[in-house]
Design a protein around this nucleic acid. Sequence first.
DNA 1: GCCAACGTTGGC
DNA 2: GCCAACGTTGGC
Length: 224
Amino acid sequence: MPPKKKARVSKRTASSGKDDDGETVSSAGGKRKAAASVGKNEKCSESPGSPQYSHWLMKSEPESRFENDIDVKFGIEDLKALPDQTGCWDGVRNYQARNFMRQMKEGQLAFFYHSNCKEPGIAGVMKIVKESYVDHTQFDKKDVHYDATSKPDNPKWSMVDVQYQRMMKRFLPLSELKKYHLQHRANGGPLKDMALFTRARLSVQPLTAEEFDFILSLEDEVAL
DNA sequence: GCCAACGTTGGC
DNA sequence: GCCAACGTTGGC
């Protein structure tokens, strides 16, 4: 499937929806308000109230799974194998996740997270090499993530380009991250509010520099 | 394969 | 604008 530079994202959420500035939309139940209160003032990213994120975590499925006869598998090895080790993170169909992608800046780092697989966890690091632009797969009827409600003159979905940087020195399993999260939630620590645990199904999520650095430091520790 | 969590849809 | 029904995510 990806002869050119094509990355398949694993997890999106139900497509469609009406508001193309999903910001408000998603926080429906009023439960989770996502720090993505960016919406209205997307132009001025320095608007107060919209925290500047600098690091990210992006989920994708490393194991084969067929959706409409199409394999959605895309693990870190698949990214690494692309020309220039670069691919577009297409297929995101969730407003919160999309909005986070729109905040990404060239040069920022993101963890490549393996989801829906034998061993979920952080596999490696990648870099944002192209800021958000129109995700062409929303118009492609053949694509798993085709969205009939999105029109070319007013596209709903965006993507970024990412480039493989490196594998983690050791794979960091979700189970281990969760232990730290629980520990930090109880006694304080950098992972106490990590989005991976506080925003269950979000496929593109922000990390603070502290979270990112702490996770990197785990590479040199023995598994918990 | 199960199912909890949660985003989206649509009736009212 | 509320909220129940529904569909998806993703760990286990």
